[in-house]
Design a protein around this nucleic acid. Structure first.
Length: 295
RNA sequence: GGGGAAGUCGCAUAGUGGCAAUUGCAACAGACUGUAAAUCUGUCCUCUUCGGAGUUCAGUGGUUCGAGUCCACUCUUCCCCA
């Protein structure tokens, strides 16, 4: 039986180093599930593994995409499964690592097949929402899919938009499409969650942000300013610097904003992870205990 | 020494007689099946059987049915003139 060893945890806790240690020890490769490290244009601000780290163990799905091509969890799931097929021919174990809950979920459990909306449909719905027509869209959703209407977060326009664009494209209720059961993976999944004291994590985050600034985050972000409207640049570490470049904040404010927002992101990740009962929680500095558990 | 401005719940802000008191940030909790580092929600003076109850707007005193708002004095901060 093949094993996918999944390492999750909040940002800056040390997933990269731990995954490398584990993968190195097992003589295998790493499949990254980080929704920002996918992009070749994003480096310092998304804490991409260093060239040395990337050389230490073979990584997949790092900088394999451009911010200019749309990408999503479903595409990732399929590419990742294909890659896993390949890797399992060479190794009994593969290490997956990442902080993007939805993407890890897509890899481990899958997500339902839904039709892609046309860009025109998506943008017309976005425009209606921007024009304050969310109430009308909610009425349409109630009529077309009462079951989902009953459970959706009606304040969250993205949820509403997503459901409607799927309904219009497929001609079927969203609730019906997402409630189809998904087949289990043909490999074993073992999940490890890295954890540490909150004050320590906060400190790690702050120090990492300072280090990013020293490495040239300002220049990296400045070079991406022309593309600031892309979804992928609506990202902690870049949006704050764009504000600074706009003259709306000082650089000092931007940096402390990045620190705060990264901390908020870490907490959101922990909230997301708290739903999984199957995670084996280990100390963030202790890759050895993961290897021990695997034996 | 003289003149002017200002002190509001962590920070910043709104509030010129009906106020536990606006908004933003931060903090805390949560939702989330294709934008997910996104998006969204709740709490945020104290206590609470969640209906309320009790204390608040630098301090003291006063005017008023009623004061964060008006008056007097005190304290503190900032600016200008000496």
């Amino acid at each position: 039986m093949k094993h996918l060893i999944v390492i999750v945890g909040p940002t800056a806790i040390g997933k990269t180093a731990t995954a490398i240690e584990v993968a190195h020890e097992l003589g295998t490769e790493i499949l990254s599930c980080d929704s920002r490290q996918f992009y070749s244009e994003l480096n310092i601000g998304v804490a991409r593994p260093s060239p040395e780290e990337l050389a230490a163990v073979k990584h997949h799905f790092i900088a394999h995409r451009s911010i200019h091509q749309p990408y999503n969890a479903f595409q990732f799931e399929h590419e990742a499964l294909e890659k896993l097929d390949e890797l399992f021919k060479l190794h009994n174990d593969v290490v997956a690592v990442g902080g993007s809950g939805l993407y890890v979920d897509a890899l481990c459990h899958g997500i339902n097949v839904l039709p892609d909306p046309t860009p025109e449909l998506r943008s017309s719905l976005s425009k209606r929402i921007a024009d304050g027509q969310l109430p009308e869209l909610l009425q349409e959703l109630e009529r077309l899919d009462p079951e989902y209407y009953a459970v959706v977060d009606r304040d969250n326009h993205m949820r509403v938009q997503r459901a409607l664009e799927t309904i219009y494209t497929s001609g079927q209720p969203y609730s019906k499409l997402i409630n189809k059961s998904l087949p289990p993976r043909p490999f074993n999944i073992v999940k490890f969650g890295l954890q540490c004291n909150r004050d320590i994590l906060r400190d790690r985050i702050y120090k990492r942000v300072d280090a990013m600034m020293e490495q040239g985050l300002l220049d990296e972000a400045a070079s991406l300013l022309p593309y600031r409207d892309l979804n992928t640049l609506n990202t902690v570490g870049y949006k704050e610097i764009f504000e600074y470049l706009d003259g709306k904040t000082t650089l000092e404010q931007a940096v402390s904003g990045i620190k705060n927002h990264t901390w908020q992101y870490a907490k959101k990740q922990m909230t997301w992870l708290s739903r999984y009962k199957e995670i084996n929680w280990v100390d963030n500095t202790n890759a050895a205990s993961i290897l021990q558990t695997l034996k």
